[in-house]
Simulated assay, not measured.
Amino acid sequence: MAATVLIVDDEVAIRRLLHNTLAQAGYRVVEARDGRDALALAAAEHPDAVLLDLGLPDRDGLGLVPLLRGKDGRVVLVVSARDATEEKVAALDLGAEDYVTKPFDTDELLARLRVALRHRGGMGQTPQTVRAGALTIDLDRRLVTRGGEELHLTRKEYDVLAVLARHVGRVVTHDRIIAAAWGGDEDPRIEYLRIVVRNLRQKLEAPQPVGSVIANELGVGYRLRAE
């Protein structure tokens, strides 16, 4: 059965673009133009995912993120013209799976939606092996290989990579990475995280880097690119 996606946006042109894009990709689509309609349709249609604009006429979309996500962890992707770092971090901290800034590339949006839905389908399961490009990350054995060759990482490098691997394809905020990798036992300054990520990139991408496997979401966090 096709997944159902709820579009929440007050702009008719954006809703039409998203509707056509999603329908052509095989999704069932429902639309809401404001927060009130969104909550009503979420209760009635039980969508698998929500594409949520923040600038709604009746309320701020940020407050809708936890309501639309609900107790079952429904996928919520923010699709908004707001590009302030604070807005992105707030949306992610409130439970959004991802944040896409308008104007957006429809192929990228569909890719991020697929990643989010795959993650939701695997909720409650701990991934044992994650693949990202030529990398294979065995979380059970704490083993990282590239093209079959084992990479030697420091404990902190592995801890940071493991956080990203458990959320592969999705942005993880700086604070979440630091909390998971440092655990409050050390001074979790963001400068330390940047140094670890820089060293990680050098090891993961050598000898012929063709684009960072760890993407930087400026001011927000990092994303391990999906396979």
Rank of each mutant, 00 (worst) to 15 (best):
A90E: 13
A90C: 04
A91P: 08
A91R: 06
E97Y: 14
V100H: 06
K102Q: 14
F104G: 05
F104S: 05
D107H: 13
E108V: 15
L110V: 12
A111G: 10
L113T: 07
R118L: 14
H119L: 10
G121E: 14
G121W: 06
G121P: 01
G122N: 14
G122L: 13
M123V: 15
M123T: 13
P127S: 08
G133M: 02
G133P: 01
L135R: 01
D138G: 04
D140Y: 09
D140W: 11
R141D: 12
L143E: 11
L143C: 07
T145I: 05
G147C: 04
G148T: 04
G148Q: 02
E149F: 06
E149N: 07
E150N: 01
L151V: 06
H152G: 00
H152M: 07
L153Q: 03
T154L: 06
T154C: 00
K156N: 07
K156L: 15
Y158L: 10
D159G: 01
L161A: 05
A162P: 00
L164Y: 07
L164F: 08
A165C: 07
G169K: 04
G169C: 03
R170H: 11
R170E: 14
V171G: 10
V171L: 09
V172M: 04
H174N: 13
A180I: 04
A181N: 03
W182F: 15
G184V: 07
G184P: 03
G184Y: 05
G184A: 05
D185H: 12
E186D: 11
E186T: 12
E186F: 12
R189I: 11
L193S: 06
L193W: 06
V196G: 01
R198M: 03
R201K: 15
A206W: 05
A206M: 08
Q208P: 00
P209L: 06
V210K: 11
V210M: 11
